[in-house]
Amino acid sequence: MTTEADISDGQGRGETLPVFRAVDLRKIYEVGETQVHALRGVDLEIGRGEVLVLLGPSGSGKSTLLNIVGALDRPTSGQLWHEDTELTGLSDRALTRFRRAHVGFIFQFYNLIPSLTAEENVRLVTDIADDPLPAEEALEMVGLGHRRGHFPAQLSGGEQQRVAVARAIAKRPRVLFCDEPTGALDSSTGIKVLETLAKANEEFGATLIIITHNAGIAAMADRVFNFLDGRIASIDVNSERRPPSEISW
């Protein structure tokens, strides 16, 4: 098993041990009487602490891949490992445990619980994680310590997304999955959110996997996977990651 120390070793650029390894992942959805091939054989390795951006048109398979790697969904065929554990062989319960322990998610529409305050939304995670950050500290990290008693309806979109980020990083995750994290935000708010993500990557060595339509965000990645028709059509490797503040929107 990987320990806390291993994670901090992997800080920064992640050419070391792969966190995820996938072989020939395929996903077929049955929609009525037709079959939709969402993934047509994806092989990949993702390194620890790596920042990855998935680009591609709608329906190209990036969200499907993210859901499978994030243990929200199962592939129709193929194999997926997290370190030395084969995720494709685990029960639903074990997948839940995996998410609970290691994975943070951030969605386009924030998915905060409207009946819980910002702090309580974060506590949803800290209540069940093994060694979480204190909820207050997580909110301080995203710059919302002063608004922790507010309900989602009392927060702006960018603030809500930052609460979602705080909720995702509070468990000190090994990996953060972000599905269009800035999709519903304007540029300056979007950059703030990306900055907090980058900070999580730096401070906890969390692998960051970001789906986006915004090609500009690719500049903050180590590698960029370009999706087309359920396959990774090409991979761009950035020699240097640029901070979100320098990204052109």
Binding site: L72, R99, I113, P114, I128, R167
Partner: peptide
């Protein structure tokens, strides 16, 4: 439904 799904994503078990 959406909140419950969010909880599942966050790692809550079905029973929880």
């Amino acid at each position: 439904a959406r909140e419950l799904a969010t909880l599942r994503v966050l790692g809550y078990h079905e029973s929880e």
